[in-house]
């Protein structure tokens, strides 16, 4: 195909075991700049582990992860942490919001970690909440939000720092189809506008259909178009 996006994140021959259970057995994947890729597969096929390796949350036992031309899997922990804070955004099924903080503070947190003053951080956070239609809930705590609202706040938190890659692990796993549609539309729309790439983990084909292409995982190995042609 013509004008393939430049690979931003490249994983090769990833191997990873949990205790003695193999989760990844030579998975490979390329994510282009601004590209939205869905990783699908049955439960236990290694989807989440693949995301954890790519996002630098865990180190693979074998293989390599390269981000913007630099090896990621060999970086020390504090550099990985910084990378996740500045260049990556993550959205999980739930649990990424601090229950005691208000919605706006949860979104402002990554900015404050980067050294932005509280007021300015809250202002930017408010703008993101507005964009995702949850501005009214900015003073609410995560426990007081509906599942769909909480996920949209989580999206705002993942996107507020202007990441180049957003990692989303079953972001709609706990939602009904309508809330799931809202969250996916918000995620894809915001990512396209910001030019951010998205790695989307899901077992739901309707969610995967929001992506530009699908990578299928089977028993820890990528089948189909894992690597760009």
């Amino acid at each position: 195909m013509s004008n393939r996006p430049v690979p931003l994140l490249v994983a090769r021959d990833l191997v990873k075991s949990h205790d003695r259970t193999p989760a990844l057995r030579g998975a490979a994947l390329e994510l282009g700049e601004g590209e939205i890729v869905a990783v699908t597969g049955t439960s236990g096929s290694g989807k989440s582990t693949l995301l954890h390796c790519l996002a630098g949350i865990v180190r693979p036992d074998g293989g390599s992860v390269t981000y913007a031309g630099k090896r990621v899997d060999t970086l020390p922990e504090h550099r990985l942490s910084e990378l996740r804070r500045t260049d990556f955004g993550v959205v999980f099924q739930f649990g990424q919001l601090i229950p005691e903080l208000t919605a706006v503070d949860n979104v402002a947190l990554p900015l404050m970690l980067a050294g932005t003053a509280r007021g300015a951080a809250q202002e930017q956070a408010g703008a993101w909440l507005e964009r995702f239609g949850v501005r009214k809930q900015e003073a609410a705590r995560p426990g007081e939000l509906s599942g769909g609202q909480a996920q949209r706040v989580a999206l705002a938190r993942a996107l507020v720092t202007g990441p180049r890659v957003v990692f989303a692990d079953e972001p709609t796993g706990a939602l009904d189809s309508l809330a799931s549609e809202q969250v996916m539309t918000a995620l894809v729309g915001a990512a396209r506008e910001a030019g951010a790439a998205v790695l989307l983990i899901t077992h739901d084909a309707q969610v995967a259909a929001y992506a530009d292409r699908e990578v299928r995982l089977q028993d820890g190995v990528t089948v189909g178009s894992g690597v760009l042609a």
Binding site: Q206, A209, Y210
Partner: peptide, 11 residues
């Protein structure tokens, strides 16, 4: 792959 392609179009 064909099904997914059609689903992407519809989405």
């Amino acid at each position: 792959a064909a099904h997914m392609e059609r689903m992407r179009e519809l989405t």
